Simulated assay, not measured.
Amino acid sequence: MKAVHFGAGNIGRGFIGKVLHDNGFEITFADVNKEIIDALNAEKGYTVHIAEENGASYDITGVSGINTVDNPGQLEQAVLEADIITTAVGVNILPIIAKSITPHLAKRLEDPRPLNIIACENAVMATDALKEAITNETGKLTASNIGFPNSAVDRIVPIQKNERILDVKVEPFYEWVIEETEWAGTDKLEGPNYVQDLMPYIERKLFTVNTGHAAIAYYGRTLGYDTVYEAMTDSKVQIFLNEVLAETQDYITAVYDFTAEEQEHYIDKIIKRFTNPHLSDDLNRVGRGVMRKLGPNDRIIKPLVYLHNEGENHEALSKLVMYATKFDNTEDPEQVEMNSLISEKGIEGFLTEHSGLESDLTKEVINTM
């Protein structure tokens, strides 16, 4: 069995690549990073290290690389032979990946073997975005042997520097949930969880892991901390994080079928991940992309608006909005843009226009600080 994975970075090698390897796939990584691709072709493998005390190490073999700019012919052959195509490139890059896949897809669809194409991105229904970009290039896709299942992925891969360029350190925990209804064929991957309805798992992760990370980053920076682990040693951060996740729990258990006990167990597991000293991440990196994170359907604003409309407590999320607007990372282009908009329109104008908050909620949020 053969896989093509777009994105040879740490997530691609340490998470998706490892799962594919464990399922017996030969993996071709497609990327524009010449150094990484050359190393993959020279080494033919790498090691995944588990970030915990006395953590295990796993050798990943049977891998190769293709420079998508320099070797389009090799990429065509890899796509034609593939049983699965995955990505971990960032949702904004998916239209570019679509242009790389599309020229070779028509021939591959003549092959009756099932082909699943999955965008493993930190975004809601990312495969739909990839499929739309592909169909914009090709027109409507009607082949019954091709699947475009959406997925939800979760694994922390910290900033790291290893002796061997291809080796990667990842946390012990991972979750890869795949939309079963869109999966082509009967042979499924071992490790991922296949579900009929993906949205509960997407939002549970988004409003627990991602909202929690945002709470640590934005509040932790106001207290002068630089890393997740440093911030999590402060009881004030711990209390605030628990308050935020208690509010998002109210959203998750109201909207979906997760019980309070299930969500509490999930929260406990997530907090243990945040306190792993082997995973500590830079708060500026965790908090970057602040405009996106204050978007109306993202990790802070969506549960806040729901709880406000339902008359439920949302004080911690309101405070989190304000901590986010005061985040100070001028190396983040979105931070620079937000600062400019706040300077021009004020915080109230920014939250009304960008985050879509109604006037009464905007004033309430501002008054929390």
Score class of each variant (00 low, 15 high):
310 E>L: 04
246 A>V: 12
290 V>Y: 07
309 N>S: 08
306 Y>V: 03
294 L>P: 06
278 H>I: 03
245 L>S: 06
285 R>G: 12
296 P>Y: 07
285 R>D: 01
318 S>I: 05
332 D>N: 04
333 P>I: 13
239 I>W: 10
243 E>Q: 12
282 D>A: 09
237 V>H: 02
303 P>R: 02
274 F>M: 01
284 N>Q: 03
241 L>W: 09
290 V>T: 14
317 L>M: 04
291 M>S: 08
248 T>F: 03
318 S>W: 09
288 R>H: 07
329 N>Q: 13
269 K>P: 10
256 Y>I: 11
280 S>A: 10
252 I>W: 00
274 F>R: 00
266 Y>N: 04
246 A>E: 12
305 V>F: 04
247 E>R: 00
267 I>Y: 06
316 A>C: 11
247 E>A: 00
281 D>F: 07
277 P>T: 14
306 Y>G: 05
245 L>N: 06
276 N>D: 08
249 Q>D: 09
320 L>W: 05
336 V>F: 00
252 I>F: 01
320 L>C: 11
283 L>D: 04
334 E>L: 01
241 L>F: 11
268 D>Y: 13
286 V>R: 02
305 V>Q: 07
283 L>M: 06
317 L>E: 04
249 Q>F: 09
312 E>A: 15
301 I>K: 06
266 Y>A: 04
312 E>L: 15
292 R>C: 07
287 G>P: 00
309 N>R: 13
322 M>Y: 09
322 M>Q: 03
253 T>F: 02
336 V>I: 11
257 D>S: 15
317 L>V: 10
308 H>A: 08
303 P>K: 02
321 V>M: 00
284 N>V: 05
298 D>G: 14
335 Q>C: 15
290 V>A: 09
279 L>T: 06
335 Q>W: 13
246 A>Q: 12
243 E>D: 11
